Amino acid sequence: MTVIDFTAFIERLASASGEAIMPFFRTSLGIDNKNTGRDLDPVTEADRGAEAVMRRMIKENFPQHGIIGEEFGSERPDAEYVWVLDPIDGTKSFISGMPVWGTLIALMRHGVPAYGMMHQPYIGERFSGDNGAAFYQGRTGRRKLGTRRCASLADATLFTTSPRLMNEADRAKFAKVEEEVRLSRYGGDCYAYCMLAAGHLDLVIETELKPHDVAALIPIVHGAGGIMTTWEGGGPERGGRIVASGDKRLHDTVLKMLTA
């Protein structure tokens, strides 16, 4: 089987997860904090319900596959094919009623992200990629995605979810980059990477990411012609400190600044 054989099933996973999530959006749902400290790391019944639905479908259709999910942990993580699930990436936006969140579904093969989808059921948009190409599907139809050329920080639009999520040292390095760009905006979570793939922004810089935060986004960014690495230039599939750029020239400049 090749990755292309799984695309119809991934569409079904996205639809099923959206059906599980939407009854909870913009309602008075209960919120639990996964963090025992002061910082909020929220999880809701929508997160748990959507991941449970996707896990059940995967086990029924591909019992030999592994699964790594944000809410329910890992099963068979060393399998040839492993699904990486983040039922609601951007839960803080979700509980605030803001529609800049999405369901992330990745299919890994031999530890490498081979296919990824970001589904936003409220807006009705899907972004997908297989490292070779990336596509948008929404109310305006289906189209191929492509990053835009941007060689200079002075011309770049930069996104991060929030500098407050960074430690003091990383925040200082981020600030040096931020001072040089044309426009800097906060928020977006997974949506920022998809907008980079669509050619609407140029740079995303983040830290402390988990594999489920990035696995689905890597094939989308790469498929659209962008580049996504750690701050040190390594593979991003394990998460950590991540840089995504639409233009390699810009990427090279930013990596030098972040590692100086």
Rank of each mutant, 00 (worst) to 15 (best):
V3R: 13
V3Y: 05
V3Q: 02
I4R: 15
I4L: 14
I4T: 13
D5P: 13
F6N: 01
T7S: 05
A8R: 06
A8H: 08
I10G: 00
I10S: 01
I10A: 07
I10K: 00
E11Q: 09
E11L: 08
E11Y: 04
E11M: 10
L13P: 00
A14W: 05
A14H: 12
S15H: 14
A16G: 12
S17H: 00
S17L: 07
G18L: 00
E19W: 02
E19C: 02
E19M: 05
A20L: 06
A20C: 07
A20G: 02
A20P: 10
I21Q: 00
P23H: 03
P23D: 03
P23T: 01
P23N: 02
F24V: 09
F24P: 10
F25K: 06
R26W: 10
R26A: 10
R26H: 07
T27P: 08
S28R: 14
S28H: 12
L29P: 03
L29A: 02
L29Q: 08
G30H: 05
G30R: 11
I31Q: 02
I31N: 04
D32K: 06
D32C: 04
N33D: 11
N33P: 12
N33E: 11
N33Y: 04
K34C: 10
K34Y: 11
K34S: 04
N35A: 13
N35P: 02
T36M: 06
T36F: 14
T36S: 15
T36N: 15
T36R: 13
G37Y: 10
D39S: 13
D39Y: 06
L40Q: 14
L40D: 06
L40S: 11
L40A: 09
L40V: 15
D41C: 07
D41M: 13
P42K: 04
P42V: 10
T44N: 08
T44L: 07
T44P: 02
T44I: 06
E45S: 05
E45A: 07
E45F: 00
D47N: 08
D47K: 03
R48G: 07
G49R: 11
G49D: 10
V53A: 03
V53E: 10
V53Y: 03
M54W: 02
M54S: 10
